[in-house]
């Protein structure tokens, strides 16, 4: 199959098997499908056309209830490894993407942020990982780093409500940072992201990629 001209432009035949291999934690099969992709296209294209859609589909399937978090987590971690191997890490400044950062706000539950970070990295994005911060620390840091896109993850409702302070403080300081939020409270109350003044909300880690992609185009 490899090298057949008909396939050289498209990886669409590989997406479903690749996604299935991630869901069943079949690393060997996932590796060989990724290798197949690399034999057809450049590393960055393999990431964009195979890994990104597979992870996006898994995120949607999680949101609909047909894939579990453990699969999303293990799959995302593995893809991050694959991408690390073929795309050397680079500074956010050197990429054609807005300076971005991800943070766990005022909470102690790292997994959501970790998954979103993996999926973003596995999709070829570079972003600052701020770890856990409270409101004031986050506002100062985001301004100092001249961040354009801020991804905020929470698990607890009080933390979700604190996003309102982040957004209003940023606005008061004249910043035009765009804020995307995610995490369980936003899934259970579909209006909450607007209420706290965020610019977007993602229901799965894959959504983070879609949102940042769209904003990137707007900002270009």
């Amino acid at each position: 199959m490899g090298g057949v001209p008909m396939n050289s432009q498209s990886l669409s035949d590989l997406i479903t098997p690749f996604r299935e291999s991630l869901e069943s934690l079949d690393r060997i099969r996932a590796e060989s499908l990724f290798a197949e992709a690399l034999s057809r296209v450049s590393p960055i294209a393999a990431v964009e056309q195979l890994i990104v859609p597979a992870l996006e589909q898994m995120g949607n399937a999680w949101h609909e209830g047909s894939v579990a978090l453990s699969q999303v987590y293990m799959g995302g971690r593995f893809c991050e490894e694959l991408v690390e191997r073929v795309l050397p890490p680079s500074d956010p400044d050197r990429k054609h993407q807005p300076r971005s950062a991800i943070v766990l706000l005022n909470d102690y539950h790292m997994l959501g942020k970790r998954i979103v970070y993996s999926v973003m990295r596995a999709s070829g994005f570079e972003l600052f990982d701020y770890g856990r911060m409270d409101v004031d620390e986050l506002v100062e840091r985001a301004l100092a780093d001249r961040i354009r896109v801020l991804l905020v993850s929470v698990l607890m409702l009080p933390s979700a409500l604190k996003v309102a302070d982040v957004c209003s403080q940023l606005k008061a300081r004249g910043s035009d940072i765009k804020v995307a939020v995610g995490g369980a409270p936003f899934l259970f109350d579909g209006e909450l992201w607007r209420e706290v003044g965020a610019d977007g909300m993602g229901r799965s880690a894959g959504d983070a990629v879609t949102i940042v992609d769209a904003w990137m185009r707007e900002m270009a």
Binding site: E23, W62, G65, V67, A68, L69, S70, Q71
Partner: peptide, 9 residues
């Protein structure tokens, strides 16, 4: 919950 792990697990 199937939110967190698949049924076979």
């Amino acid at each position: 919950s199937t939110t967190n792990i698949p049924r076979d697990l």
